[in-house]
């Protein structure tokens, strides 16, 4: 006869499971691709600021024509102002730090330091002019903290080349940062879905939200007013798909759990596997963001989000896919080389 586990025993078992889950390791490939994507997106954004010549007006002090008034607030909320003074030099210095550290992050040069430096620069620029800091900037700051705690620089990086003379060395890193990034993404979308309480996002509002947004002149990429009403049902479908994608994000989390525990079997696991919930959800997400690129002016938002999608794939999946592609290429080349 087996005694039922006691309450403390049950919690001890769960704690041990959590400790071993946080200690699991994997190859750094997925995180490295996230690092590369985030670095490139932010570098492009800060380079665009320089190209447009608006560094001073965005982040300079109000006394020098800057748009923000942080330098006038008592007990300034901007650490950089407290340390270096509120000046054009500080603004340009912070921008330069953001530009350089985003590039070194992308290249994987002193990756953790680059991530932290970029995080610092980003927070200071946001504190100087909060209106110029958008949701994607806040999300990427969260990601930078994760990258700084991860082994994202251990592959596809100058750091990897310096240490191992290889871009994909045979090393492992802790897996929890990638998993936390997956959780972060699922939460971003679910939270966004929950905040869409306006009825035009729902059947009671005729699923009219996307139609209204595509006619907003400040965000629409072009003037769609001459023909958008003719494809109104398509916009309704787009609105419904957006809500399904966002509010359905926890199903994505569940599908990942089911994949990890596939050995337990069960109806739900086989239904999720048969419906390919994970693949469908990721495909919806990619389509959603690619659609945004072509229809709305949202800056780096769709690119920044897509840069994070590498986290949805385990490093083993990426390596297997790369192997299959190399094998297919070799098989395609073989007949011509043997004739």
């Amino acid at each position: 006869m087996t005694w039922p586990m006691t309450w403390p025993g049950r919690w001890r078992t769960r704690w041990r499971w959590w400790v071993s889950f946080c200690a699991e390791r994997e190859r750094p490939t997925s995180l490295a691709l996230v690092r590369l994507g985030v670095g490139l997106v932010l570098f492009a954004d800060f380079a665009q600021v320089a190209h447009l010549g608006v560094v001073d007006v965005l982040w300079g002090p109000s006394s020098e024509g800057g748009l923000g008034v942080a330098n006038t607030l008592p007990g300034t909320p901007v650490l950089a102002h407290a340390w270096f003074g509120a000046s054009l030099a500080t603004a340009r210095g912070l921008h330069a730090l953001a530009l350089v550290s985003s590039l070194t992050l992308a290249l994987g040069l002193f990756s953790r330091t680059s991530a932290l430096a970029l995080f610092f620069a980003s927070t200071q620029l946001a504190a100087i002019l909060p209106f110029a800091d958008r949701g994607i900037d806040m999300l990427l700051r969260n990601v930078l903290l994760l990258l700084a705690c991860s082994g994202a620089g251990a592959a596809l990086s100058l750091d990897a080349w310096r240490r191992h003379r290889a871009l994909l060395p045979d090393v492992t890193v802790t897996a929890w940062p990638r998993r936390f990034l997956v959780l972060q993404l699922v939460w971003v979308y679910f939270s966004a879905g929950l905040h869409k309480s306006q009825l035009t996002w729902w059947p009671a509002g005729d699923f009219g939200a996307l139609y209204l947004i595509l006619l907003d002149p400040h965000f629409a990429r072009a003037d769609f007013s001459s023909w958008l009403a003719d494809v109104y049902p398509l916009t309704q479908l787009g609105t419904a798909a957006t809500m399904l994608f966002e509010v359905g994000a926890p199903l994505m989390g569940l599908s990942l759990y089911f994949r990890r525990t596939a050995h337990r079997g069960g109806v739900m696991r086989s239904v999720f596997a048969r419906l390919r919930v994970r693949e469908v959800w990721i495909a919806l997400g990619v389509a959603f963001h690619v659609g945004l690129v072509f229809t709305l002016r949202l800056g780096i938002f769709p690119f920044g989000m897509l840069a994070l999608y590498w986290a949805f794939f385990t490093p083993d999946e990426l390596h297997d896919a790369a192997s299959r592609w190399r094998t297919r290429r070799a098989m395609t080349a073989a007949p011509s080389s043997s004739s």
Partner: peptide
């Protein structure tokens, strides 16, 4: 959260405004 200007409350177009502004 105030110092790092980070958040876990996310909203992407929570309002589709039927009365938009045009600068």
């Amino acid at each position: 959260y105030e110092r790092t200007l980070t958040t876990q409350r996310w909203s992407l177009f929570p309002l589709a405004d039927p009365d938009p502004w045009w600068m």
